[in-house]
Design a protein around this nucleic acid. Structure first.
Length: 552
RNA sequence: GCGCCUGUAGCUCAGUUGGAUAGAGCAACUGCCUUCUAAGCAGUGGGUCCCCGGUUCGACUCCGGGCAGGCGCACCA
């Protein structure tokens, strides 16, 4: 029977709980912290300080009293001491760490998986770019974020469905059809005026060429209505998106078409009727409005325009009604910065329809500025020249792109330095982590050639006595917890922080302690440790979708 | 004017539910390869955690009020 971080923490918390129970204070927070300063032990709790106030006694004596009462397994905890101003510090035994290490090696590629979020059933919608043009860099950022979040939650035992919403209806569909019509004429050599505010750029010509190639064998009078042409083009652009996301390592469980699944199916009409039935609408200036301002938004929104066509928000409401009706415990949406103004309206609409707000959450993937030569790369949508996701990927590669996009919190404005991401040097943070992995691979290979094999059982780890070994053991132990915390908070960038720390601890260990020259017992113990680090590096990079190269 | 995001070292950013002396990378400087990958390690310098109040044993963290930067505020989606 091996331990993991969860069972150890549970044991510590149980002991604390029963020691505190005699004070008759039920609402003392049972917190367990990992002190920054390792002189303070492996775990610490400030609960004596919370207790001090209730008991009106100084915290330190209380901490001493509790520390004396703790009924702890001596195989797990070596020392429990009370220190000023009132912390209780706990130090784990080497045997506890070795047990965790044995467990990690036994689980291998599955180490880090846990059941902490097993109640979660999440619908995660992200990217959802308009099918009217190429994916941009914010889409690329959202794609990596969403993909990593899904992987993290799955690793923590939750169920996640990823979904891509295709905005293929409404005004922009019509405009896209007209733009494509114009592009086809242009390609045929019979120029025609492009619609005002229409879509242009090289990709429209590409699309026109594709259309002509495919309809080559058709009768001369072959023609599609503008609407049908728009639908054809949008379907094609969606195929492009799907393919480029695929090469980026991002796939979706569902592709949800606004036109087919909301409009054609009648769900939009139903949603509108539902809003009307509940008295949430009114008529003004020939349009139908929804009273979102009464539910927390700062203004009302138009549901049906005076020309009789539904505004986008009706489809959005219909879509979310559909989502919320599918039985998820949580519906999360990653949106670009240009949509944040509508979050309040959507939340208000949900509230009006009686959905609890916590069920629906929006994460914003903030702006990305591309830097090149210290200067911001100009992106101009109007001129049809903006850096697309594909261009960026071809410049810096999948690993660097993914690592850079998850490196920071989603709602920080990200500066993406293309040159740094391209560099194959120490300036590039991806390589630091990958290098640690490659070093271990090389080490294991070399040892195997000499017949040295890693220890895999607790008994074999006794030669690990150096502080650097225990730094690594602690990191290995904490890994599953980092997975859970990153998953729970939807913050994959925490895994980047973890990876960096783990790699740093390994590099330190590696420069200080030799393996090939050590005695066979020590060498085998250190190899076991290195193997576990390799496993965790692989697993953690896997959750971010970054590859772990065997050599560099 | 209203709303959202951000403000931490020269630059880019971390900072777990409020905890003990605020961290990392880059940039600058100094050391370390006849030995498992120097894409590495060790060290030095560098801080008004935007400002002012409040909450408390304790605040970068929570609350209130400001200031600065970015973005959004269509019968577009």
């Amino acid at each position: 029977m091996t331990h993991d971080i969860f069972s150890i923490q549970q044991a510590l918390l149980n002991a604390l709980r029963s020691a505190v129970s005699s004070y008759g204070q039920s609402d003392v927070p049972m917190t367990l912290e990992s002190p920054k300063d390792k002189a303070h032990g492996d775990y610490a709790t400030p609960l004596a300080m919370a207790l001090a106030k209730k008991l009106k006694k100084p915290p330190l004596p209380i901490a001493r009293e509790i520390a004396g009462k703790l009924d702890l397994d001596p195989a797990l905890v070596g020392k429990a001491e009370a220190v000023a101003p009132g912390f209780i510090n706990l130090r784990l035994t080497p045997a506890a760490f070795f047990s965790v290490l044995e467990g990690a090696l036994a689980k291998g590629p599955r180490y880090g998986e846990n059941a902490q979020l097993k109640e979660t059933r999440l619908l995660l919608e992200f990217v959802s770019a308009n099918p009217t043009g190429p994916l941009n860099v914010v889409n690329a950022r959202a794609a990596v974020l969403g993909d990593a979040i899904a992987r993290l939650i799955r690793a923590s035992g939750g169920r996640v469905e990823t979904e891509y919403y295709i905005n293929d209806a409404g005004n922009q569909a019509r405009l896209f059809g007209e733009s494509l019509e114009a592009a086809i004429s242009r390609v045929r050599g019979t120029p025609k005026d492009a619609p005002e505010g229409g879509y242009q750029g090289a990709y429209m010509d590409d699309l026109a060429h594709e259309f002509l190639t495919e309809t080559e064998g058709e009768p001369k009078d072959y023609n599609l209505s503008t609407a049908k042409l728009g639908e054809w083009g949008m379907d094609r652009v969606v195929q492009w998106h799907k393919a480029s996301l695929e090469t980026y390592g991002v796939s979706f469980d569902q592709w949800f078409s606004e036109r087919r699944e909301l409009h054609d199916s009648g769900l939009v009409a139903q949603a509108l009727q539902k809003l009307k039935d509940q008295g949430l609408t009114y008529e003004k200036d020939g349009a139908t409005w929804i009273k979102t301002s009464e539910y927390g938004a700062h203004k009302d929104e138009v549901l049906v325009k005076s020309n009789g066509l539904p505004a986008y928000i009706v489809a959005d409401i219909a879509y979310h009604l559909h989502k919320l009706g599918r039985g998820y415990t949580k519906v999360v949406n990653i949106m670009g910065p240009d949509h944040h103004g509508h979050i309040l309206s959507m939340k208000a609409a949900h509230k009006a329809l009686g959905f609890e707000e916590p069920l629906f959450e929006v994460l914003i993937a903030q702006h990305v500025s591309l830097l090149s030569g210290g200067q911001k790369v100009k992106m101009s949508k109007r001129e049809g020249k903006f850096v697309t996701m594909e261009e960026l990927l071809s410049q810096v590669g999948k690993d660097a792109a993914r690592y850079f996009f998850v490196m920071r919190g989603a709602n920080t404005h990200l500066d993406f330095d293309i040159e740094v991401a391209q560099k194959q040097t120490e300036e590039n943070p991806v390589f630091y982590v990958q290098y640690a992995h490659a070093r271990i691979c090389s080490l294991l290979k070399k040892c195997a050639e000499r017949g040295l094999h890693p220890a895999k059982l607790s008994g074999g780890f006794a030669p690990l006595t150096e502080p650097e070994s225990f730094l690594l053991l602690k990191q290995i132990m904490e890994y599953p917890q980092w997975v859970v915390e990153s998953a729970k908070s939807y913050e994959p960038h925490r895994m980047v922080v973890y990876l960096h720390n783990l790699a740093a601890d390994f590099h330190l260990f590696y420069t200080k302690h030799r393996i090939l020259d050590a005695s066979p017992e020590t060498a085998r113990a250190r190899l076991g440790l290195a193997l576990a680090v390799q496993t965790v590096l692989q697993n953690a990079m896997g959750l971010l979708g970054v590859t772990a190269p065997e050599q560099m």
